[in-house]
Write a protein that binds this DNA or RNA. Structure first.
Lengths: 213, 213
DNA sequence: TAGATTGTTAATCGATTAACAATC
DNA sequence: TAGATTGTTAATCGATTAACAATC
């Protein structure tokens, strides 16, 4: 158990570091100092060094950080060197869009199946995979080593279905339903509450207008 | 200028308050104390009172908060009593999914148009609205009082198109492209970086496994 | 009135920033 | 070696929690 307990604030910044380092790497940049990176990313050099040092001393005094090395290390920290099998629950517009958007695949998130309880949708193809009925989820999860479920179903049934998925052995839920789930704390949940995000945008828009008036 | 400067941490919690109050309202609950609400929402009563008091004294000693009134007030704070016209830039899977998912409409976010530069998509119908070519964006924004643009385009062109949209008069951008935009600070931007969110889930999944081993 | 619960001030906690000795 | 830049400790800042007087 090398790492103690790293705050979610730090974790949330890791994918962004990863992204910027990827760009630098693609540009052929070999090394970067915390100061350089801070200018590009609009945060403080101090914060970058603090963040990275939660996971180890990746830098070298007088030199900075090796871009490719740091990129790889952060990838490993994020678990991108491992493959995760995921299924999508709910083959509506959003479920299908996520299934088709598969930059995720490139990062090790493998789309294995998609399920829906609407007979009109079951049997149709989504990205070479047939939509299966909900009754088959249990067996599918158990037989295919699925650890992530993506919830793109209405909030009215999301809480219940999440509980079922956990009982089938799911370890993590990427929740797009607009409701807070009720699962044991060892199950990882990441919420994407689109309406909340849009409301926040609305607040900032309206309150900025008010101040500018 | 009644409000000074309210932290984004507080703003981020408002939609969640709004959601829970909506549920209570639908259940016919008339009043709620900060303590009751804290138990339901899994946060402290103190935080709820602090958060709400940034915007005014909505409660009453010895009674608590009137559910319907507080719901309405938070709605107003979030700007949900006003209508916003929005357009979607990029009619791929995600753009179409968002166009069709219109719980947003119920909150005053009105879908007015959708644009794409792919000739194979231009002219097709998305939710009774024809996909228009990108050349028409400028005139459309100027003539239809559009204030929000939803970006569901590849990151390779997102930064440039965002700048153009701003020059056409867009006030806010809901950005689904996996890149940080470069717009003046008076333009409100809300990022939805799906891959970042999934990576965070991955981190928590992997690091939890490690600790449980 | 007595009990309940707010609004608000003060205390605590955690996260960010600054500073600097260590070291490449 | 001298200069650069890290890793890390200390200082600051901001956000959360606790406490309590005000008041319905």
């Amino acid at each position: 158990m090398e790492e103690k307990e790293i705050s979610q604030a730090v974790i949330s910044r890791l994918p962004r570091y990863f992204r910027y380092l990827g760009v630098l790497k693609d540009e052929g940049v070999e090394r970067v100092s915390s100061h350089d990176l801070s200018r590009i990313m609009h945060l403080t050099a101090s914060q970058i060094r603090q963040d990275l040092n939660h996971f180890g001393g990746f830098g070298q005094q007088g030199y900075g950080y090796n871009v490719e090395n740091l990129y790889d290390e952060i990838g490993k920290i994020l678990g991108l060197d491992k493959e995760h099998n995921l299924i999508i629950i709910g083959a509506g517009n959003l479920g299908q869009a996520l299934a088709n958007y598969m930059n995720f695949e490139r990062r090790g998130f493998i789309f294995r199946g998609i399920f829906d309880n609407n007979p009109a949708i079951v049997g149709t193809m989504v990205r070479d995979i047939e939509v299966r009925p909900m009754e088959e989820v249990k067996a599918f999860v158990e037989n295919n080593n699925i650890d992530i479920a993506v919830l793109t179903i209405p909030k009215s049934c999301a809480v219940e279905i999440a509980e079922q998925l956990v009982s089938y052995g799911i370890k993590a839920i990427w929740n797009f339903a607009h409701v807070d789930l009720n699962v044991p704390e060892e199950i990882q949940v990441e919420n994407v509450h689109l309406l909340d995000s849009l409301m926040k945008l609305s607040y900032n828009l309206v309150s900025h207008d008010k101040q500018g008036a």
